[in-house]
Design a protein around this nucleic acid. Sequence first.
DNA 1: CTGTTAGCGCTTTCAC
DNA 2: GTGAAAGCGCTAACAG
Lengths: 338, 338
Amino acid sequence: MKDKQAAKVTINEVAAHAGVSKSTVSRYINGKLDAISPKKVQSIKKAIEELNYRPSQMAQGLKVKKSKVIGFLVADITNPFSVATLRGVEEVCDQYGYSIMVCNTDNSPEKEREMLYKLKAHYIEGLIINTTGQNNDVLMDLISQDVSIVLVDRKVPGLKLDAVTTNNRDVTSQIVNMMYDKGYSHVGLFTEPMKGISPREERVSAYTEIALERNAGRIPFVYEVDAKDKEALLQSVNSFLTMNEGKKAILGNNGLLMLKIISCLYELGASIPEDIGIAGFDDTEWYKLIGPGITTIAQPSHEMGRVAMERIIKRLEGDESAPQTIELEAELVLRHSL
Amino acid sequence: MKDKQAAKVTINEVAAHAGVSKSTVSRYINGKLDAISPKKVQSIKKAIEELNYRPSQMAQGLKVKKSKVIGFLVADITNPFSVATLRGVEEVCDQYGYSIMVCNTDNSPEKEREMLYKLKAHYIEGLIINTTGQNNDVLMDLISQDVSIVLVDRKVPGLKLDAVTTNNRDVTSQIVNMMYDKGYSHVGLFTEPMKGISPREERVSAYTEIALERNAGRIPFVYEVDAKDKEALLQSVNSFLTMNEGKKAILGNNGLLMLKIISCLYELGASIPEDIGIAGFDDTEWYKLIGPGITTIAQPSHEMGRVAMERIIKRLEGDESAPQTIELEAELVLRHSL
DNA sequence: CTGTTAGCGCTTTCAC
DNA sequence: GTGAAAGCGCTAACAG
């Protein structure tokens, strides 16, 4: 390590420099200006500027049990949906002086658990989480430690927590109906394993309901696939594509999966929407540039992040009202893939 | 606030529970096991498990001046390039028990400065930054505070810091040459304002050099545009497109810009590569699905994140060698947009 | 208004 | 081996 390390300036130096006690400096820092004589305010201000002093979050935090950091725990930060949400969270964090600690879980409950403990050790004040649903005990522990939690996108049954989600059921019904209206007799839903993940389940359930209703007698086509298993996915897509009847369309359960499905379609030489229609969830700017433009359900992910963080701020400010789940509206973006 | 708050379990409870002093527990936590009698090791282990104890990072940090957090400061976390890098950083952070604090600067030097101070207040041990280059003083201050800094993607002249970059010049020359080889007589480079940002400058300079060499007498076509100003961009693209001579191709300086340019091309009804060729930097999975597939220079962004973080770990472990810039190889991904 | 004092939860000499 | 004590940088009574 370097030893020419300039000692960090502390409240003591400021106090000495300004000729006051550190309590007074502390008061100044905490904005209790009207409890300090104007001249001292001036000298403290001057000292702080000259020394370029910044209070240590660690020391402050240790004392008041407030770290000014909030945790953002998602399955995969690489997912554009998560990034957009993070952006929203960040905007309001910034506004209130909070910092964000970002963690990936890769949908692994064990990793999630580890991360939760890590975040706890950092005394996070709030947590925005896209949970696997397998660590409710740790979540409860965090709650008892006074950290404010809000679930984004995924709700957890039996966990009374604030949540911000989208109207998955409605919007799924809407698009599935539209698909049938457009004359697609066979609409297949591709989804990653549900594993109790609420938005996936809601979409599947809404789809199934409409499929049953509109397509009497034919079983709904739900393909549960692993987006990472390219071969298997290709198989599934191909088997759906080559069923020898009807006009077909695929509904993809999320953006990442859509990407894989479209790749498969290209590989199989199927053209959109002539050979097969397709629509999905999430929206990225790229969607409009792919094929004829992909019709999709755009989630207000950025907004979800903002709302989630605002909820946390409210909680931190003392709001004790019952947990609520805020459902934001997803938007159907019509392009030409159907 | 809730008052049923379960007190956080501290080292004292553990000590009491295990019937030892807190010094001994501290020794245990810090792995000095051979300095503790085996039976005490057992009882401490048991106590920790039963109480589900985790040492407070804040308290530890305050004492040893190590927060176990590293800062990740980028212009725009929404940029896929940044996300991939973050992912890489995260992997190695995880491995060494570090947490990441993520901040956006939006390319604003003022915001960057604010964030740097914020990060400093959190006693970050390391910083991975994609800098505007306008806050070298704060960076130096951080250095004097013993935080290890590594620049990613963007180098800063005059700042002797570790950096990880890509071989922009080489790879740009390569692709530009290829474009001319393919018979494009007019290749235009579209870039966002250079403002001293090294990769942009390097690419423009490499392009200019080749353009001059291969296209004697014709001035290079460098369009400096604002990716956010849709109208102006459309203008520029159109003016290049409608020059009434030669076979044309565009080279876009980064992924975000590419997206906008391709949109413009679609809007103008130009088809790729018949009416105009195009190639760019960065690579996202979507590139292969757009038009005929976009030829691009894929940066090893994930790898860059890993390498950057590994560099920090080395520094933190005491490596005092001279700052080095590690240049990773970008890869030319040939598809059919040229 | 302002300084003194006592910790926050941990690490680290320094004795025993 | 192990505990007592001091202190990291800060805040929060409590006097004055």
